[in-house]
Amino acid sequence: MDKKAFARLGAVVFVALAITTTMIDMARQDGRLDAFVVPTHSVTTPDVLDAELLRCSEIGEAGARDPACLKAWAENRRRFLGQATVSPISPSATTPGGAIAKGEHAGRSGSTGHAD
């Protein structure tokens, strides 16, 4: 047998095996589909923090100056990082322009929290 015919025979055998394997897998898959059904109801309860974070994201840049948003973001960071306690940002910690008062740490990158 020459090389060309041998290569063709190998390709036909490979395709036949691929089709057979696919058919067997499709026949088995019918019983396993129920295991991948996603429940239609929520397994978590609605969270007040989620609603507040959504509100803050909807108000855009004003959220950076809103004391309630700053508090919500601080709580979200605390939960994400698994910290036990957090010093909440009080409305008095912000200046009338919305900037964090000196000595307060806002958790933003580049901020050291030290008075200059």
Rank of each mutant, 00 (worst) to 15 (best):
A16Y: 11
A51G: 11
V48F: 03
T21Y: 01
L53M: 12
R28K: 08
R32V: 10
P39Q: 02
A16V: 14
P46M: 02
A11R: 08
D50E: 15
F14H: 14
M23A: 14
V43D: 09
A11M: 10
M23Q: 11
I19P: 02
V15Y: 12
A35M: 06
A35T: 10
L17V: 15
T45D: 13
F36D: 03
A27F: 07
T21V: 00
P46F: 00
V37W: 02
G31F: 05
P39N: 05
A51Y: 06
T45A: 15
L33R: 09
S42H: 15
F36N: 06
P39I: 00
L17R: 02
D50M: 07
V15M: 13
V48M: 01
P39W: 01
H41Q: 14
V13P: 00
R32P: 01
E52L: 08
T44L: 14
T21F: 07
P46W: 05
S42G: 12
A27G: 13
V37Y: 06
V37I: 13
V43T: 14
D50P: 05
D47K: 04
G31Y: 01
L33Q: 10
V15F: 14
P39D: 04
Q29P: 03
T40S: 13
M23V: 14
D47H: 04
H41E: 12
V38H: 05
D47I: 03
A11K: 06
D25P: 01
G31E: 10
T45V: 15
G31W: 04
E52A: 09
P39L: 00
T45C: 03
V43K: 06
T22A: 12
A11W: 07
D50N: 13
T20G: 06
L53N: 07
A35L: 11
T40K: 09
P39G: 00
R28G: 05
A27L: 11
P39H: 04
A35P: 00
V15Q: 09
Q29W: 07
M23P: 00
V15G: 06
M26N: 15
D47L: 03
F36V: 12
A18T: 11
V43Y: 07
L33S: 12
P46L: 00
A18Y: 08
D34E: 15
V38N: 03
T20M: 02
T45H: 15
A11I: 08
D50S: 12
D47P: 01
V43G: 04
A11H: 03
G31N: 04
M23C: 12
D34W: 10
D25H: 07
D30C: 03
L33A: 08
A18E: 06
V15N: 09
L17F: 06
D30I: 08
R28Q: 07
D34G: 09
A51N: 13
H41Y: 12
T44S: 13
L49Y: 01
M26F: 09
D34V: 13
Q29I: 08
A18M: 13
V13D: 07
R32Y: 09
F14R: 15
D34N: 15
T20N: 05
P39S: 02
E52P: 02
A27H: 07
T21H: 05
T20L: 07
P46H: 01
L49M: 05
T45G: 14
T20K: 02
T22Q: 09
